[in-house]
Every structure is written in structure tokens, then in C-alpha cells.
Simulated assay, not measured.
Amino acid sequence: MGLFTVEEAKAELARLLPMLDELVSLRADAAELTASLAPGGTPTTLGGLPEFKAAQARLDELMTNVQETGAQLKGFAPLLIDFPAELDGVDVLLCWIEGDAELSWYHRADLGFAGRRRLP
């Protein structure tokens, strides 16, 4: 996949947000179902093994859908998504983490999350 412009990445993130919201909700359901299925686990009203398997399948589908856009799913809990881009001739990753209201951060591709800065 190619590079995103800032505008393209923001538009793609806006399109992905409903999927990301569903992913967060399913992630919580899967965690609760996993705990309930463990020996001595606390029962849940969410169901049992069939519901867990359905949640896992949908999570896999959503994660695949995100990655097919060219975005990079870097973290699951919390969700962390990078959009490959170039700023002023430097390879960067436009960076969104669960809880961010919008795409407003980036970091150099060689620095990772620790090098995160606000978009100019």
C-alpha cells in the first residue's frame, strides 16, 4: 500500500471509527467470556463458548478490514493504528490511539510511539 496524506488518513480514520468502536466493544465481550469460561470463572449473561467463538471471528474480521485499508494495527488493548505517510520528506506514521478524538499525532517511522508529536 502507498502512503497516506494527512487528509486521506483523517478521512480513512473517520470511516473506520464505527468499526473501531465495534472492535472495542467486542474486545470487552471476549475478555468477559474468556474469564467466564475459565475454571471457576464468574458466569456472564453474554453466553458461553459459541458466543466467544463468534466474538473472536468478528474481531478477526474487523482487524483484517482495518489492515486492508493500508493502515497498520499496532496495538489491540488499547487500539493503536498507524497510517504510513511522509512529512517534509521524512517517513512518518500518523498515529491514532484509542481515546484520541481525531488523528492529530505522528512519529518518525524509526522512533515508534515514544517519538510521538502533535501534527503541525
Rank of each mutant, 00 (worst) to 15 (best):
E8P: 06
A114E: 13
T34P: 01
G40S: 08
D21I: 00
G47V: 02
T64F: 09
L59H: 02
R58Y: 05
T44P: 08
P39G: 07
T34G: 11
T5Q: 12
K53Q: 15
G41A: 08
A14I: 00
E51M: 04
A85C: 10
E8D: 15
A11C: 01
T5K: 09
L37Y: 03
P43C: 11
E32S: 12
P39Y: 04
L80N: 04
P120V: 11
L20N: 01
A77L: 07
L103Q: 10
D21H: 07
L3S: 05
T44S: 14
T45D: 15
G70Y: 00
L46R: 13
A109W: 00
V6R: 14
V92S: 04
P84W: 00
E12F: 01
E102A: 14
E22H: 06
I97L: 10
N65W: 05
A85Y: 02
A35E: 09
T5E: 11
G99R: 12
T64M: 08
D29G: 00
E7K: 13
R27C: 00
G112T: 07
G89V: 05
M63N: 12
L49C: 00
I97W: 05
L20T: 01
C95D: 11
G2L: 06
E68L: 12
D110Q: 09
G70T: 01
A55C: 13
T69S: 13
W105H: 15
L23C: 07
A31S: 06
P120E: 07
D110H: 09
P50I: 10
F113M: 11
E22K: 09
L79Q: 12
R58Q: 12
F4I: 01
E61F: 09
K53S: 10
L26T: 06
A9Q: 08
F52T: 03
V6F: 05
E7N: 06
L26N: 09
A28T: 11
E68F: 01
A71L: 01
A101R: 14
G2T: 12
V90E: 14
L59S: 05
L49A: 13
E98L: 07
A55Y: 04
L80F: 09
V66M: 11
E102W: 03
E8R: 13
L26I: 10
